[in-house]
Amino acid sequence: MNIIENFDLYAPRLVDKKEYLCSGHRACQGCGEVLGLRLMCKALGPDVVIANATGCMEIISSMYPSTAWEVPWIHVAFENAAAVGSGVEAGLKALRRKGKIADRDVKVVGVAGDGGTMDIGLQALSGAMERGHDMLFVCLDNEAYMNTGIQRSSGTPMGASTTTSPAGKVSSGQKTWKKNVPEIMVAHGVSYVATACPSYPLDFINKVKKAMKVKGPSYIHCFTVCPTGWRSPSEMTIKLGRLVVETGIFPLYEVEDGKYRMTVEVDQLRPIEDYMKPQGRYRHLTPDQIEIIQDRVYQEYNKLQDKINGLHAWSDLQYEWGLFD
């Protein structure tokens, strides 16, 4: 077979073979989050400083006395991955100015889970994005506090059963909708915001590479599957990541300077039962409740489509009005 004709099929072989997050980390079987982290490190390369908030990825990669990291890495508290990342960036800038380190591009990356981004770390993230530091922030969203034993976070979707939003006679799982953090980041005027999923590895790697080239803040929201917390089989990790995109629950798009673009087009959305069926956390839902969630998914998806198709992006308007010529 010709490699050029089947480029997408054979493209995994073109990815950087070097591993910056080595084998021997203690992630669960079939962890989607560590796969996201591994692909992210491959895309970033060696010239990088990572500030990692507390969470699964910190616990499994740096269990004393061993570390799985081959790149400079700092563990910070739950709430300040973005704050430490911006401090590192300012420090590197000062050292470079004084001539104490070589003058080369070193990207600072903040990594946090959904709790460290959406709940606890939101103010630090908001501050770092607002100050315009030259850093990338990656949220690895597995939709609950999996590290401490599956407690609900503001990233937990409606109806999901966790230990602090249990399903039973009175309650039917999480009672609130998922917080839309990529949209909050767009509202900050961040120059590059994207959503990604490791089930689409080349799409994810391209987005990280694009975010690296941005001079200024950028944000990537990475949807990662957690077989332990979602009560799903470990081999279904990649399949569930694909289903969440195909059902329209988590569409993959990017926002460059206010311009929305869908990166993975879905012709016909699949019903969300396909996505919910393999997962134990949705087992208790009745067809009526699934109907309500389905309506919301269509509504959110249409809202996003409107932003992509119908509206003038902010940067277009600026050009048309000629305010800054």
């Binding site: 099929l9 995994p12 072989r13 073979k17 591993e19 997050l21 084998s23 989607g32 796969l35 990649i238």
Partner: peptide, 16 residues
């Protein structure tokens, strides 16, 4: 020899 197993391994333990 497409490399799907290599790119999707969370351990990074599949090699060519």
């Amino acid at each position: 020899k497409c490399g799907i197993c290599y790119i999707f391994c969370p351990e990074g333990c599949v090699t060519q």
